[in-house]
Design a protein around this nucleic acid. Sequence first.
DNA 1: GTTTAGCACTCAACAAAGGAGAGTGCTAAC
DNA 2: GTTAGCACTCTCCTTTGTTGAGTGCTAAAC
Lengths: 344, 344
Amino acid sequence: MKLSARKLRILQAIIDDYIRSAEPVGSRTLAKKYELGISSATIRNEMSDLEEMGFLEQPHTSAGRVPSDKAYRLYVDKLMKVRSLDQREAEYIKETYESTIDQIEQIIFHTAEILSEVTNYTSLAMAPRLNKVMIRHIQLVQVDEELALLLIVTSSGILRDTLIRIPEGINNDYLSRVSNILNEQFRGKTIDQINTEEISSTWDKFLKNRKFLSSLLDILIQRFRESEKREVYLGGTTNIFNFPEYQDIIRAQSFLNLMEEKDLLYDILANSAEDGVWVSIGSENSYDELHDCSIVTATYSLEDRVLGTIGLIGPTRMEYSKAVSVMDYMGKALSRYLTKLYGR
Amino acid sequence: MKLSARKLRILQAIIDDYIRSAEPVGSRTLAKKYELGISSATIRNEMSDLEEMGFLEQPHTSAGRVPSDKAYRLYVDKLMKVRSLDQREAEYIKETYESTIDQIEQIIFHTAEILSEVTNYTSLAMAPRLNKVMIRHIQLVQVDEELALLLIVTSSGILRDTLIRIPEGINNDYLSRVSNILNEQFRGKTIDQINTEEISSTWDKFLKNRKFLSSLLDILIQRFRESEKREVYLGGTTNIFNFPEYQDIIRAQSFLNLMEEKDLLYDILANSAEDGVWVSIGSENSYDELHDCSIVTATYSLEDRVLGTIGLIGPTRMEYSKAVSVMDYMGKALSRYLTKLYGR
DNA sequence: GTTTAGCACTCAACAAAGGAGAGTGCTAAC
DNA sequence: GTTAGCACTCTCCTTTGTTGAGTGCTAAAC
């Protein structure tokens, strides 16, 4: 069977209506509300065809029909008109960025909050993958007799540091010699590329303070490990209660429990598109728990390195056109903002 | 009317039973399950008295009875036996502390997670109030031609830092002169005690780079402001679904929404006891939204300065004896751990 | 004076029964 | 190919009993 223009029009009307109302759509409603120029009986016949073709589903015999995941996919790919973002919303996003602080993690966290505010969906934001970023500078700074600070600066200005205790009798000169060696070893590499054994052997130059030096290395490595931490920030988790499909306590709970599985969420974001906006609908998701959710993601970058992904999650009956336009805008705005702050 | 020993025994039995079952307790159940040595009719009479005295409430005529907030208060103050913590749980807490990282905020966050794991309640943890902590050292470190790092070390080793851009032609010497001045101004003060105007006038010594210096000051002040940030970490928010009283979607939602109001939660923690464990039951809470929750808090300290508060929140039908013992243990364990890490 | 057995009464919770309403599929006519 | 009409289906809601746990009261027993 072919998807005639009329069938498409009807399908579009059903999807639009269902996205708005969350109620199965019947032929009579359709005939009355949308100016399709055909009677409900004709619509019934067409709907029957659409069901046979897998675009519609019936919760039970005497209910209206509901779009299938396949229908949403068609909608997203062909039918939907992606509006560009509302002037007011774009303005709002811009403004909030201007007033934020400059720690990269905080910016991402804040981004998640804005996303959920603007869309009323639950938002996800993956912390930047700093292990893809080059180390630019490592330095030990003496704070006082007991303490020194170990600094790691990456090529994008992102910073890690740790306060460490130093043994007695170590002075600033000594620390800067150590710094130089560390720099030789690390500079220009990404965290992924570091070879710890090689470094360890370098310490042989230093006869004294072996213990201190190797603990220093431990700390460094630990800090690098942390950068690989698969952190996900969430926004608007309780927005899910706004949707009638989550009025059921069991479903709401299982959704919220899912949102606590940061590792899984991270995987979802990490496995979405490599660049740009990406939509995954219901059963397209590789995780069972998400079979009645849809996810819209966008990547964000610093200069032209993709650092991470942000996303929205909601019922399959999602306002895709809005979600896609917001994500598109947001991914770009965030990238611009990061590049402005940390780019060269 | 006097609270006879028998009335107390009955009340205790009712509270114990209700805490376990969440079902109104009837006289027959009581007579059968607990060896009180009296018949259900006698218990009925006593229960009627207890209701008159305000210790019991009846959801409706033909239901059993439920302890009132007043009863829980009596229970917490007089009746309950505070067990010391289960060996296994104490062990578990100790172990997890040993494997954590050393950023103070992370430790606190992790504490919240442990708390909710051990108790199955929702946990709260207030970030440390660093504005009560003395500034020990401020330093500017040059990273390369464009960037420098501004460091603030407090008396308890807690660190804040920011990467800043420096104007051309500024060298390390210059930065260390500036550092010295900043140190003169700030060292030994708490963040609360800083007088920004006084500092601003100090810049007059420097003819060049006024703009850089004043932006530096802005950043410093901003960082201090951040330290006053009223941050609260949560653990186990979805644990609330385990309780039958939150099977109702409206109540669950309003609870979860409440948990998003970080400012309010911060206030609650900040206004609990100044030191040690504290219990607030139902209507004792000053916020309406919490009238059917109870909160158990404990403070944590570094050396002997109280830095913040951790807490548990759950239905008034809470296992107070467990909650109190866990909070007591945890407050102390956290303080010990912080002191070990950051104390002198 | 307490304690207890017995009984009438109350009320929520559950289940069954009976519309009402929305929607479908089919048929026959246009 | 389109449409009106009608029988049929199925959920949802309301109504109506029924059950069971629990109470309060009274009168007898201790």
